[in-house]
Nucleic acid binder design. Sequence first.
DNA 1: TAAGATAGTGATTGATTACTATCTTAAATG
DNA 2: CATTTAAGATAGTAATCAATCACTATCTTA
Lengths: 205, 205
Amino acid sequence: MTTTRKPAVERQQEIVEMTLRLLSELGEGGLSTQTIADHIGITQAGLFRHFPTKNDLWIAVLSEIERLARNAWELVSREGDPAVVRVRKTLLAQLKLIEDYPAIPTLLFSTGRLAAEEVVHPIHVRIMTALRLRITEELSVAVQECGRDIQIDTLDIESLLLGVVQDCVLRWSLTGRGFDLVAEGDRLIGLQLRLSGLEAGGDRS
Amino acid sequence: MTTTRKPAVERQQEIVEMTLRLLSELGEGGLSTQTIADHIGITQAGLFRHFPTKNDLWIAVLSEIERLARNAWELVSREGDPAVVRVRKTLLAQLKLIEDYPAIPTLLFSTGRLAAEEVVHPIHVRIMTALRLRITEELSVAVQECGRDIQIDTLDIESLLLGVVQDCVLRWSLTGRGFDLVAEGDRLIGLQLRLSGLEAGGDRS
DNA sequence: TAAGATAGTGATTGATTACTATCTTAAATG
DNA sequence: CATTTAAGATAGTAATCAATCACTATCTTA
């Protein structure tokens, strides 16, 4: 039995993407090199030509997530929007990304460590930190731009906003992805922005 | 080598508690029956006298979490506090519980293999639903009690509050439990309650 | 077109997994 | 104190895990 040969980089990308796909169904603990190899159509041994260790595969997967995330954020923020809009779009981009790759929360929002954690955890932390940093920067601009006098700490607004994202993702997962993640996120992020005073319409009674 | 024998119910409780403890360090995928047995001081085979299947152990662990959670909520709400305070205390009780049993977010917020397991998933969903239900009920009373005209949907306030909890837990985990989870949660929950208009002091400029 | 580089196979490794059958003995029971 | 019973030990099982081996088929290029 022979398999159509592919150049290494192409095959590696294929393996990483397949792993990302299978992860959302099987979870981290239940995903074996055999399963991945089967779904791609190569031997289990052949997988180890491209990733000498399963740990190396996890690193590649996490790095791919980082790449995808940074890319998604970047696509959003180079427009000339006001900062509030950029914040909103960044968060929605994150939700869109999760919609496309449901394995991401499995890996990033899982507070229970990965099996291969020693090497993977730093990347994990780096991605989350990068997102927080980006939102923080955009937020402090937004606070200045909005014209009102915002009493709340920027970091706290950020925490509340990221909480909204997490709540949406968790509910989306538990309900078997039973609603439009991005739409629901947009609605609640808008609500939180109004409550924080960064967008108009949040005045009470 | 002999071990001091214990009555079954006592040993079972011991196994469940040890599993809960080890889970926060090792994660779900990396926790074997061998490891659990070693830490307790019985043989791996001996564990299967009390739980015929590892799945049965997971069910017992999830049930224990459910019991602990319901207990924590109950202890809080039988006082004569106003509903807003009860909401706040319920959420803080949840944070306190997570502080005591860090394995809880590992299991409840995990979207991985365990969550997808036929028998475990229902319990998982049931616990989260119970928390939401309880908060929702207390919140709608709080909205009536607060005297103000709250424009926001009760379910949305709930989502925002639970988002705060999740954000705190995630940051707490990623920073290696580097701050006081309950204190930080109290602070942000208070902020969110003021923003929502349920507590005084949230007026802007 | 011959030589080298490399993607992939097939077979097998030792370790670990959840789980079982059988025997032993400590502790509860009369 | 004798008998029962059930907690735990001993010693396995088959399956699966990541990883390694010698080797082959295919592609590239000098």
